[in-house]
Design a protein around this nucleic acid. Structure first.
Length: 779
DNA sequence: TTAGGATTTG
């Protein structure tokens, strides 16, 4: 406790000084005396403003008067306070306070002749192990006025709803999101931490430090942190925390009832009963107000196409190439799928050879990329890790019969992707260690006993899985939604017939394209039948930025059907943003029912608004109305779906055409309705795939254009919903199980139509699947 | 300085 504020109750302090300290007389403050375990006490008669030295260190000069030597010629002495202590003292010190200093260094005072004070001065700093006690009378300082206990910590903590731009504060918070420290592009490690507290306000902090150890030791969402001297700034209209000089943190397990042991790199920190209470209160609050169920999984529970956090032990590591690095880890459980082995040179593989061999069926290879490589390289074999947001991917190599699962830690830090080292004292590391010690390696090497795995909870043993596969071989995995009365036509007959015609066929899916299913999502115009790629965010960003150049026309603000709000961003760019909230019955509706139009926002701000409001339409001003932006950008955003219009078929109308929908009894703000009002031909999200179908007579390629009917997954949601991508992958694995011989593939029942495509050069017949859906028990 | 939460497509 380097600086402590003590309140005097009835003339007495309730916290006596440590018993080993003895008071030193002013006259004994001379060079050559031993001042260890001594303290000097005086009354503050003068306190200079806090300043900074040339090297940026905070500095405070205080003059103390010795009340025991009031009659002496020299009865005052200069105290020079450096660093954090100077800053802390400056905050709470008042003239008239009693000031106790211990652990000081004594030096000749260069100003003694001029100021007539003691020939020496005392130098104190936290680094020197000094301690300062400030005794104050009730009502004389701001801190003591609010203190309700006899010992008030010197630190004042600001709740997250009271943060002000440009201040340096102390605060507590529960971790809602974090990126484990990673090597930034500058000189430091960086960690991003989002906190929340009972005021329900969030604060995202960006923390830098050249020393990994100085960043908060956060291991999971729900951990509780105490930050000292964090700087608050406004960024993009929101408060942001950033490390300032002297930043320090403590981190605590967020579990109610767990021991309160601060994790910190700093040797000196204050922590008192009052603060224990704060932690316990935050734990209780978080338990009922914060969802902390992370995407954790054991290797036994992994699925293709998922992102998860893995707590594991490092068994081996190897360099792969410049941008990737291999980690071999295990968690004692077995992955239910064959896992890939990254080929590396034996001499590049670090780790105990015997152990690597023993655990070969239990370790998985995780390939980490780009910014994670330096940290991965530095990991020690045997250490316990938590790897955040590992991606599992299903793939099959050309020479493999069955597909395998790959584990990737992609580059970047989205969603907290990264690697954290757990100390052995960490409860999760302890639990894992105990579990790993209990694993019977002999059993794990017996593949038979390990193969009765629980595939996504559907099959409890291998015979269930087999019978499911058999079912797939007997009953078709796709069914017709119409035309059941038709007979099947063999593929040879189909291929040899004239187009256009329609057929019912029974065939096997030998292969399909694209293999990367996300690549099958396109935008389709049902009017001109054109297909186009889904634009990426960069195009949108470019258009949004371009539109921000047009100033909002104030004459278009606040009409009969919308209210307008304009503000200027606090950042250097001083951008003006205007939002028009569409009203209903002259009233604003609940945000979740509200359509708004935005001018001058950034892509990020647009996305943020879609989280809260039903519809967002980016617009810009003209002389007499608002208009949509270029149609390469979405004209409408709902939730995380972006709606686009066909450039060729749309004739955009002024935005006031929307007022008719706003006037409806219950505006539903359906995209089709909005598009129609705005003269937009809505592009529909569709999955486009090419199926190579075979039967005993022949083969043909048939196209599938599916909005939702075939896979029973809305195509519009595939790109933004990982679960749906996973579901689609599983369906494809049933329709076309990787690594199977043709005989073992399941049957598909499809309805197809043939059609002619002619151009000047050639004539071709194409086939398209329709009126077909994946069987109910396959989805 | 760095990053400024909001998955890659190796």
């Amino acid at each position: 406790m380097p600086v402590q504020l003590v309140k005097i109750i009835k003339g007495k302090s309730e916290t006596p000084l440590p018993s080993h300290l003895q008071e030193e007389d002013l006259n004994h403050l001379q060079e050559g005396f031993d001042h260890t375990n001594k303290y000097f006490q005086g009354v503050v008669i003068l306190s200079y403003p806090l300043t900074k030295l040339g090297d940026g260190t905070d500095f405070l000069k205080v003059v103390l008067q010795d009340l025991n030597n009031l009659c002496s010629r020299v009865n005052s002495i200069n105290i020079l306070i450096y660093g954090k202590m100077a800053e802390d003292c400056a905050k709470i010190l008042r003239q008239g306070d009693t000031f106790v200093v211990a652990g000081f260094k004594l030096a000749k005072s260069p100003t003694a002749r001029v100021d007539g004070r003691h020939s020496c001065h005392l130098e104190v700093s936290e680094e020197a192990g000094s301690a300062i006690y400030i005794y104050t009378k009730p009502g004389t300082t701001a801190a003591s006025e609010t203190a309700s206990v006899s010992v008030a910590p010197k630190y004042v903590y600001t709740s997250l709803n009271h943060l002000k731009d440009g201040t340096i504060v102390n605060l507590y918070g529960v971790v809602k999101f974090f990126k484990p420290p990673y090597v930034s592009k500058g000189t430091d490690y960086c960690s991003v931490v989002t906190l929340v507290d009972p005021s329900n306000v969030k604060l995202t902090c960006t923390l830098f430090n050249g020393n990994l150890d100085s960043l908060p030791k956060i291991y999971k969402v729900g951990d509780i942190v105490r930050f000292h001297r964090i700087k608050i700034r406004e960024y993009n209209g929101q408060m942001q925390g950033i490390t300032s000089a002297g930043f320090a943190s403590l981190t605590f397990d967020g579990t109610v009832g767990a021991p309160i042991v601060p994790r910190t790199s700093s040797k000196v920190y204050t922590f008192m009963n009052e603060e224990q209470k704060t932690i316990e209160e935050l734990r209780v609050w978080a338990a009922s107000n914060l969802s902390i169920s992370g995407p954790a999984a054991k290797l036994s529970g992994v699925q293709p196409m998922m992102f998860f956090d893995l707590t594991c032990q490092l068994v081996g590591k190897a360099k792969v190439d410049g941008s990737s690095f291999l980690l071999k880890v295990w968690d004692g459980t077995k992955c239910p799928y064959p896992t890939w082995k990254v080929p590396v040179e034996a001499r590049d593989l670090e780790g105990e050879k015997v152990l690597l061999h023993q655990l070969r069926n239990l370790t998985v290879d995780i390939l980490v990329y780009d910014n994670h490589v330096p940290l991965a390289k530095s990991l020690k074999i045997g250490s316990f890790l938590r790897i955040y947001s590992i991606h599992t991917k299903q793939a099959n190599a050309d020479n493999e019969e069955v597909s395998h699962i790959e584990f990737h830690l992609h580059g970047g830090t989205c969603y907290g992707r990264g690697i954290g080292v757990l100390p052995e004292s960490n409860p999760d590391a302890k639990e894992l260690k105990a579990f790993l010690e209990s694993v019977d390696l002999a059993e794990s090497q017996d593949m038979e006993s390990m193969s009765s795995v629980d595939l996504d909870g559907t099959f409890s043993n291998i015979s269930d899985l087999e019978s499911h596969l058999q079912r797939c071989q007997q009953l078709p995995v796709t069914v017709l939604t119409d035309h059941q009365d038709l007979n099947n036509t063999e593929l040879k007959t189909v291929v040899n017939s004239m187009a256009p015609q329609q057929y019912r066929i029974r065939a096997k899916l030998r292969t399909y394209k694209p293999q990367k299913l996300y690549q099958s999502v396109k935008l389709h115009c049902s009017k001109c039948n054109s297909l186009q790629e889904v634009p990426d965010g960069d195009d949108f960003d470019f258009i949004v930025q371009g539109s921000a150049v047009t100033a909002s026309n104030p004459e278009l603000h606040n009409t009969s059907w919308y209210d307008s709000v304009t503000w200027t961003t606090q950042d250097q760019k001083q951008r003006k943003i205007t939002i028009h909230f569409v009203k209903h019955d002259e009233m604003l509706q609940q945000p979740e029912d509200t359509l708004l139009m935005i001018e001058g926002g950034t892509l990020k701000e647009v996305y943020k608004l879609t989280k809260r409001f039903k519809c967002v339409i980016p617009v810009r001003s003209t002389e007499d109305d608002l208009e949509l932006l270029d149609l390469s950008a979405p004209f409408l955003l709902q939730g995380n779906i972006k709606y686009y219009g066909c450039k060729q078929c749309s004739t955009p109308k002024p935005v006031k055409s929307l007022s008719s929908i706003a006037a409806e009894q219950r505006p539903s703000w359906e995209p089709t309705e909005i598009a129609q009002a705005l003269g937009i031909e809505l592009l529909q999200y569709a999955l486009i795939m090419k199926f190579t179908l075979v039967d005993r007579t022949g083969a043909l390629n048939a196209y599938l254009l599916d909005y939702e009917k075939f896979f029973q997954i809305p195509a519009s949601e595939i790109l933004t919903n990982n679960f749906l991508q996973q579901k689609m992958q599983m369906t494809m694995n049933t329709l076309c199980p990787p690594g199977r011989k043709l005989d073992d593939l399941p049957w598909l029942e499809c309805f197809i139509k043939s059609y002619n495509v002619r151009d000047e050069m050639k004539h071709q017949v194409y086939y398209q699947i329709f009126d077909t859906t994946v069987a109910e028990d396959v989805v």
